[in-house]
Each structure stands twice: as structure tokens, then as C-alpha cells.
Design a binder for these strands. Sequence first.
DNA 1: TAAATCTAGTTAAAAGATGTTAAAATAATG
DNA 2: CATTATTTTAACATCTTTTAACTAGATTTA
Lengths: 232, 232
Amino acid sequence: MKHMNSVQLLLVEDDPNLGQLLKEYLEVKGFSVKLCRNGEEGYLTFKNEVFDFCIFDVMLPRMDGFTLAEKVRQKDTKIPILFLTAKSMKEDTIKGLQIGADDYMTKPFRMEELLLRIQAILRRTQGDPGSTSPKEHQQIGKFTFEYDQRKLIFQDEEQKLTSKEADLLFLLCQYRNQVLDRSLALKKIWREDTYFNARSMDVYVTKLRKYLRADDKLQIINVHGQGFKLIE
Amino acid sequence: MKHMNSVQLLLVEDDPNLGQLLKEYLEVKGFSVKLCRNGEEGYLTFKNEVFDFCIFDVMLPRMDGFTLAEKVRQKDTKIPILFLTAKSMKEDTIKGLQIGADDYMTKPFRMEELLLRIQAILRRTQGDPGSTSPKEHQQIGKFTFEYDQRKLIFQDEEQKLTSKEADLLFLLCQYRNQVLDRSLALKKIWREDTYFNARSMDVYVTKLRKYLRADDKLQIINVHGQGFKLIE
DNA sequence: TAAATCTAGTTAAAAGATGTTAAAATAATG
DNA sequence: CATTATTTTAACATCTTTTAACTAGATTTA
């Protein structure tokens, strides 16, 4: 049996029967599932916890699935979102596409198929869950960033990074040219979003900016009240 | 790392009768069993001693078996955990799966069956392709590491290792490309996690780094506040 | 718009953890 | 028992992270 942190899944579905059924099925398949009954509850939950995957019903009380998805996207531009649509409505499909949905399921559907789609999206976005993580080499402007080695290489110069520096830079890279939400970063790297951690993060942003100065096309800009964006 | 003749087993069970019965039975079968009465006691014991196997009742006073298992997993990502569940509760099974349980027993059960399952898990975890058996030679970059011979071989050069050096390198290899928790290493090799032992371990890390320098693709990097990671 | 308030940028000091070397203590060996 | 190998302890240097303090923007409020 594999010892891995399970994928944290946010499921928002107002039909109690379907919701509970899906939750249980996905849990048996090894996911951690948080079930919310309406859009507002879903959004609050999303803000307070860290998830890897979202499944939203489109028709929801208090806030519909698309609005929810938009708000979630503002906070996390990468998280996969899969919609459950009541019928194959063209408008739904279109609107979902605009928001950046990763997939759709039209009710009714077989749970096995849902599972397959989730797995497909996860493979696409994360890489194989079973295999060892591939060596992360990334290009950031003129730099090569070796996350596992904690190195930032520019021409012959090699800047060693501390673990926190590397973690933050890695997250910024994942959200390259997009806003990395402050709170998300704090929760992912510092484990909790507190005042002091936030200040600590600011210090690290300053450090990273210093390292990246060698390439003047690179910038870490602040988006007031939201977070930071690494732009090339 | 001392290769003890018996498997060290941590049993957390609040029912005094069942607890004592299991302890005695398993001891007759050749295990060393530590019995704790509640989750907190179990966790403290786990932190202070070294075990090879955990058996946790799910319903426990002071801290339930799942929470206990999660905290144990944070410290030791490999140790087998078997749950005892009061009834065949689906939620229990699910939550256990997410935590990475290795097996379940639903009460009531026959002790012979428990024994068989423990033995099966131990066979599986020892013969796991991921983990290396102590007797095998392993490759670390350009080196061949013969743990039982306490030798590190590179081309014609053969570096003799002391037992502590070999133990630490062996543990690092088991957690290759993963963080080896400081406290876990201290408990496994030094038997307890104290300030002075920690400093001693740091000295050994320095020694190992010196040995491994011949292959510049190998590194033992520190993860501040957590532990060390051997990366290839 | 000015003042107040909140958020972020930056630097430096403080606190904590690790790296390294060498001497001291302990254990193993002939 | 003397010698040698191993491990621990001590000391000091360095690195990492957090906290504090001060400055500067941004946004809101009156």
C-alpha cells in the first residue's frame, strides 16, 4: 500500500444523495474529500483550507458553480476545476470554458468515469502519482532553477538557495505570470496564514528579488491585498 | 542501527483486557510489545522510543487512532500501521486509507489472524522494491555501499565506515530523495532524540559528506528544522 | 483631499539551527 | 595494560529563519 498524502478534493454539490455518494466513492479511491452544500460554504471552505482539486455542481444555492469557480480562480489560477452540469447545456459549457474548467461531467454519469477523468487531469497537471517526482529543472528568464538542488544558475554563477527561498520561488514559478495568492503561499509553505508568517514571507520576497535582479526582464510584483506575481 | 532480534511493536488499545491479552500473545510469538492505554500516551511513547510496527485501536481516549496515526506518519513515513476498528465502519476504512494504513482488523477477531496479517505486512515491507534489504549492496551514485560490510566502494578505492557512519548512510539511503526526519534518525540510531545526540549526528553528516564528495552529483542537503535529504 | 489605516519594502538584529574541527571520553583490540 | 578506533562533547563559525523597527505605498474614511 502506498504511503502518500492523498489528494485534497473540494466537492460542492447540493443534492445530498449524490454528494454523499460521490464523497464516499472518491474516499474509497483514496482521495480526501470535503463536501459542501452550497456555493458560499464552498468558497469559505476553499479560503480556509488547501485543496488540490475542485468539483463543482453548476446549479448551486447561494452561489452558482461558475461564480464560485471564478472566485476560486482569483485565488488559485492553477487548481483543476471539474464541473457537474445538470444537462448538456451549451451555455454552461461555454461559460465554463471561459473560466478555465478542466473538464465536465453531464449528469447522470458513471462514477468510474468521473474517477478516470479526475485521474487524467491529475496526471496532466501533476505527473504520475506513483512514480518518483521528476527532477525539476526550470528556466526563469536567464536563470536555470534547480529546485531539488536548491540552486539558481546564471551563466557560471551559482546561487545556493535556502529551503524556504527555494519553496517560494518554486511556487511563484508554478504561478508564473499569474498572481500567487498570499494566503495560498503562506498555507502551502508556512502551514498557516498568520501576521508574522506574512511578514516573514515579505522578507523572502525581497531576497528573491535580489537574486533575480541579474535579469532585468524578471520581476516579482505585488498585487496589493492579493499576492505576488512573477513576470518574465 | 542495531538489528534487534525482535520486532518492536507499539500497541495502543484502551480496553485493558484486550490490550493485555494481545500484548501477551504477541510477546509469546516473539515480538517486543509496548502497550499504551490512550492516544496521547501512545504518541509520547512513539516519540521517545523506536518501533517497527504500530497497532492502533481507532476509538481511543485523549486522541483517536487516526489522529495518532497522522502524527506518527509525519515523523515516520514508512512504519507499518494496522488499525483495530470496533465495527466494519466505512468511514474508518476510508480515513485509514488516506492516512496510509497497511491493514485493518475488525473486532472481534482471532489473534492468529492478527498474527498472520502482521507477518504478511512485515514480509511485504521488507521485500518492497522501494526499500533495500540490509544485506544487499546498494548503489549510491558512483559508489557501492555494502552496509553489512560497512564499506563504501568507488572504483578501486574502498572506504571503511564505522558503524554509526554506516547506519546513518543506510537510513539516508532508505529515504533517498526524501527528507529523513532528524528526530526519527536520532531515535533509530542513537535511541533517543537529545540535544547532544543531535550534535553528534551533525558531526556524522559532515563525515558522510566528506566521503561522498568524490561524486559531485551526490549531496546531503539540510532541510532547516526538519532533517536531511540525500539527493542523487 | 488630508488624515487615518492598512499593506508592503527593506534592513538589521535576534533567535535558532547547522557546519566544522579538534580535543576529550569511551569502547574495542591485541 | 597499552594502543587504537570510535564516539561524544565542546567550541566556534556560519547559515537560516523569524521578529522588530522603520519607511513607503495604497486604499479607505471623514
